[in-house]
């Protein structure tokens, strides 16, 4: 555990040293909510169920931010392999899992910070979130977000360890992210998507993360899957990707 904390601390230091990355991490949610969400919400008057569009997409945005930074952090392990810094960690008396978990913790912390910003913004200008379970809604959502981050960190890592170089990795991630986002139900309820796209959403791990967040933050009426099923799917996804990634984590490509 202290090993994972050491890695987490290092990751936060590295993130903090890149001011542009920190700035981007907090401007992106602002842009989505205020420039995109607000336009649909108040410009077009779009509502989903009893809530405004901005509030509706906020769980999806939180999940998207966590997903993308987790994939990026998984890629960071690949970058550490390319620069050789990974060797320093692999030869230390530290388990591979704690190397990965430490990164996961740092990326989850960042995602939680972004989520907090989103919640506050929606409360201020988007009519607020229903939070059907009160404080438990928030704690549960934080846990789901952490789980989602672990899963996609593992996915990023799995792709990184299987890619011969950074270019291949980035191309693979680039091809995956946007379709995954649009097929996740982040912007449109899954039930309103065409049948073929709905089927695609069912095999999209991001969709389960967003759905669980919606159950917790908006209420069951806004979700497509029962919460236990979504959480189970996320657990399975995280275990698979982290296991695969950590097992294939070696010094050389």
């Amino acid at each position: 555990m202290s090993d994972a904390l050491a890695v987490c601390e290092l990751e936060l230091t590295r993130t903090w040293q890149s001011r542009a990355a920190v700035l981007a991490a907090f401007i992106t949610p602002l842009a989505w909510l205020l420039l995109f969400g607000l336009a649909f919400d108040q410009g077009l008057g779009v509502r989903v169920g009893a809530i405004g569009y901005m509030a509706f997409i906020s769980p999806g945005l939180v999940a998207m931010l966590g997903t993308f930074s987790s994939l990026g952090s998984g890629q960071g392990i690949g970058r550490d392999r390319d620069t050789g810094f990974l060797k320093e960690m692999l030869v230390a008396p530290v388990s591979r899992l704690s190397l990965v978990a430490g990164r996961g913790m740092s990326v989850a912390l960042l995602a939680l910070g972004q989520a907090l910003l989103v919640l506050v913004l929606v409360a201020l200008v988007g009519g607020g979130l229903p939070l059907p379970y009160g404080a438990l809604s928030v704690l549960g959502a934080a846990a789901v977000l952490g789980l989602l981050c672990m899963g996609f960190l593992g996915a990023g890592l799995a792709i990184a360890v299987r890619s011969p170089n950074a270019t291949t990795y980035q191309a693979t991630i680039g091809v995956l992210t946007l379709p995954m986002f649009f097929l996740s139900g982040a912007l449109v309820p899954i039930s309103k998507m065409p049948a073929a796209l709905q089927a695609a959403a069912y095999v999209n791990p991001m969709a389960y993360g967003i759905d669980a967040l919606r159950t917790l933050l908006l209420g069951e009426a806004y979700s497509a899957f029962p919460l236990p099923l979504a959480v189970l799917a996320l657990c399975g996804f995280a275990l698979f990707t982290l296991g695969f990634g950590a097992r294939n984590l070696t010094a050389k490509a």
Partner: peptide, 22 residues
């Protein structure tokens, strides 16, 4: 081969190492 993170300082490298070795 090289095994440093270019954006960290010498002191940061030593500090992280000390953490990894408890």
């Amino acid at each position: 081969g090289p095994s440093l993170d270019a954006q960290l300082s010498a002191r940061q490298h030593l500090r992280f190492h000390a953490r990894l070795y408890h």
